[in-house]
Simulated scan of single mutants.
Amino acid sequence: MYSKMRLLACIDCHGTMALPIDGGLSMVCDSCKREYFKTDGVWDFRADPNTGSQKSLAIYAELEFQRWLEIFEHTESKNWKIYETKLYRFFTQSGHRLLGRSLAKLTKVNDLVVEVGAGNGALHDFVALKNYIGIDTNWNMLCQLATNYPDKTLICTSGGVLPIADGIVDTFVTLHTLEHIYHLAEAFEEITRILKPEGTHYFVIPCEGGLPFSIGRALVTGPSLKRKYSLDIDLVMSREHINDAPRVLKFLKMYFRELKYTHWPLRFLPFLNTNVMIWGHCKSRPELLPLIRRAEIEGAKKPLDGPD
């Protein structure tokens, strides 16, 4: 048996699918017949690396960065230095606390909430979300989330296409995620596609490029990575946080309306060099949808280049 709402979309042909509601562990796209499976509480929507539409960057394939990804997934994701003490967590989880309060106050009980960069579910420690879909590229972290919150719909995917049907999402969440996405404009076009016309995007980004982050890396995370793994923090974070805060805000202003954001902790001094993170929200711009669809039809998207 399947839900009446066709919430998901095939990553190959974009045909819509309904989630099984009877504990089913597979579903099939009506259009192209691709079958998707659920294992350990997580739906596998990862693209075939040989047919992916977005180009991966060579800098992400460098051996030292690949070594870091292995270390993070199997070791540091559970014991990352920035969560080690109460003082560190006061700063690093500030966005979780503030966003959790906002979502609890401003979203309705049955609103569909989609989070990209769901990780191991840290947001759920700060807000109860009934109708939730969590998406991430990291399978192991999603499995942790599934263990702690087995009632949530969780999807592991890769590439630039979100496996969500058009125009159905009330609330979209990116919590310390946008700084990681190289193809930022393409990601925002996908968010625009799945949001309802009055849908809201809530976000938290670090004050990347500011003095507090430089100090933190010099005194805390940098020495830790060097001591434990002989890794260079600058090599790692220049790739992990490919976007600094000004670039993210620039794209948010282009792709969304009613953008409102606040610096933390010193909101009265709204500068990168006096704060550690920025949080806020913005509304969808549905008038962009015809242009996005036309670009897709004409093949005009150029992930690595601007307009001619």
Score class of each variant (00 low, 15 high):
Gly216Val: 15
Asp125Cys: 15
Asn131Tyr: 05
Lys228Gly: 05
His124Asp: 15
Tyr149Glu: 09
Ser238Asn: 15
Thr174Met: 09
Tyr202Thr: 09
His201Met: 01
Pro163Val: 00
Trp139Gly: 00
Ile168Thr: 14
Lys196Cys: 11
Tyr149Gln: 14
Phe251Ile: 03
Gly160Ile: 14
Asp232Pro: 05
Val248Ala: 00
Phe126Gly: 13
Gly121Asn: 01
Glu179Trp: 08
Leu219Met: 05
Cys143Leu: 06
Val173Ala: 08
Ala146Trp: 05
Val248Thr: 10
Tyr182Val: 03
Leu123Met: 15
Thr221Asn: 12
Leu235Ala: 06
Tyr182His: 11
His176Met: 14
Cys143Phe: 02
Gly159His: 04
Lys253Phe: 13
Ile155Phe: 05
Val173Thr: 11
Leu184Tyr: 00
Leu195Ser: 14
Gly159Ala: 13
Asp136Ser: 01
Thr137Arg: 08
Glu115Pro: 05
Gly222Asn: 07
Val220Gly: 08
Thr221Trp: 06
Ile155Ala: 10
Ile194Glu: 02
Lys250Phe: 11
Asn148Phe: 10
Ile191Asp: 12
Leu235Arg: 02
Thr200Ser: 11
Pro163Tyr: 05
Leu219Pro: 12
Ile194Val: 11
Pro212Ala: 00
Pro206Ala: 06
Ser230Asp: 13
Gly199Glu: 09
Tyr149Cys: 04
Leu184Asp: 04
Ala146Asp: 08
Thr137Ile: 15
Asn131Val: 09
Ile133Gln: 11
Ile155Lys: 07
Thr174Gly: 06
Asn138Trp: 09
Val204Leu: 00
Leu175Cys: 12
Glu208Gln: 04
Val220Gln: 03
Thr192Pro: 13
Val220Ser: 01
Phe126Pro: 01
Phe172Pro: 12
Val248Gln: 01
Val127Ala: 05
Thr200Leu: 11
Lys228Thr: 02
Ser230His: 09
Glu189Gly: 00
